[in-house]
Write a protein that binds this DNA or RNA. Sequence first.
DNA 1: ACTCCTACCGAGCGATCGCTCGGTAGGAGT
DNA 2: ACTCCTACCGAGCGATCGCTCGGTAGGAGT
Lengths: 230, 230
Amino acid sequence: MKVETAKKVEDAAAWRKYSENMLPPLLQAALDCFVEHGYHGTTIRTVAARAKLSVPGLYHHYASKQALLVAIVQFAMKDLLVRSEDAVAEAGSSVEEQFRLLIECLALFHAHRSELAFIAASEIRSLEGESRTAHIQSRDKQQQMVDDIINQGMREGNFDAEHPKDTSRAIVTMCTGIAQWYRRDGELTPEELALRYANIARMTLGVGPGSRRESVFTAPTVGDAPIVVN
Amino acid sequence: MKVETAKKVEDAAAWRKYSENMLPPLLQAALDCFVEHGYHGTTIRTVAARAKLSVPGLYHHYASKQALLVAIVQFAMKDLLVRSEDAVAEAGSSVEEQFRLLIECLALFHAHRSELAFIAASEIRSLEGESRTAHIQSRDKQQQMVDDIINQGMREGNFDAEHPKDTSRAIVTMCTGIAQWYRRDGELTPEELALRYANIARMTLGVGPGSRRESVFTAPTVGDAPIVVN
DNA sequence: ACTCCTACCGAGCGATCGCTCGGTAGGAGT
DNA sequence: ACTCCTACCGAGCGATCGCTCGGTAGGAGT
């Protein structure tokens, strides 16, 4: 029982955990280059050098420069989608909580994985064929998750927005935008920033900042009680 | 008197007016190519072909590929800054009105000039040397304008934000983000979108949507009266 | 001992890149 | 009539690009 509870808590919070060096070294080298010079501005020789490989050595692992980009972008979208679903699942049945955790998750990802998210967003143009289509579908799915929760909240009367669709887009954009400016050596940790962004997002829906600043582990009873808030 | 008033009104609203084909044909061709393939993904031959010039013909007008990008980006930033200043000036002394018009202006620009704004934001990496520094300074100046107005509004008690700096960044990001997704054939005109974004932005500062949906020309008396609102 | 297989390279190929050389055509000025 | 100047090109140069050829080194399996 004790073990199961601990494990459940651990799983439930997995979407908040970010390790370093999650990418294979070669992909990490490619990502660094892409961030610095862009996909087309990066040469295969630069990537190889940064990964301490020869050019043929690099091609042993990936078939082409394009394959490197595809692998990076697919990793990014998969990671974000899994985390997003976990976050919503952890929230339980409260729409307000679902929204709060999803935005927190979105912000957290774009701060912690800013390079990854930056490339996934800025190099869509550089993706060829099907991987481009697939990537755009992932993006749309991500937006749809936020749309759905906001619509649900509108129906239940928790949220108040004149134009929910536009508000949803604005919220997602401001979260994904984090990847463009967030610096690890800045003033805020990803966690602090994510809390602030969740509150800012709530305000656009007419929900007060609702200062829930404690750790998630302290007050798990709130979500359990089947009380309709509004 | 009649002429002067008319001219004043016209000047005051100049920041709302967007003509087409404002760029020289060659720069427009370059912009189209950059939007489609990115700066490094664009070849000088492609630009020349789209502008119906030979390659040496192109180099008669601009010294290098980099010069094309610099010209485009400088045009974009100059245009946005001038419009922003005009918008704030038109607002008069009311901080709330200054904020509303500045956000409207920002959103309007990023919808009307989405290609221009998109390149100006996404190709910073591709700018070399001083023009890169200058461009980043322009960006910061733009952010600072919003910061200043929000801070002023906080001091005067018009706005309510837990973290004004973060809210300001979120607002600017969601406006500049418009350039990434706005399509001319979409559901909303730039003007409609800008009004909605101004309202969404106001909500993040605890100010209700304040449905001021009429034309700007109907109620100019509000800004004239030197009344402190709060 | 021998056969695979994985993980790599040195050298270089064909294509394409940004950019230039040495021009011309035609209008404006005197 | 002559001199500029602007607005262009055809052809091509040197550099660099993505990618490949034909290898080797060394560990695992039998």
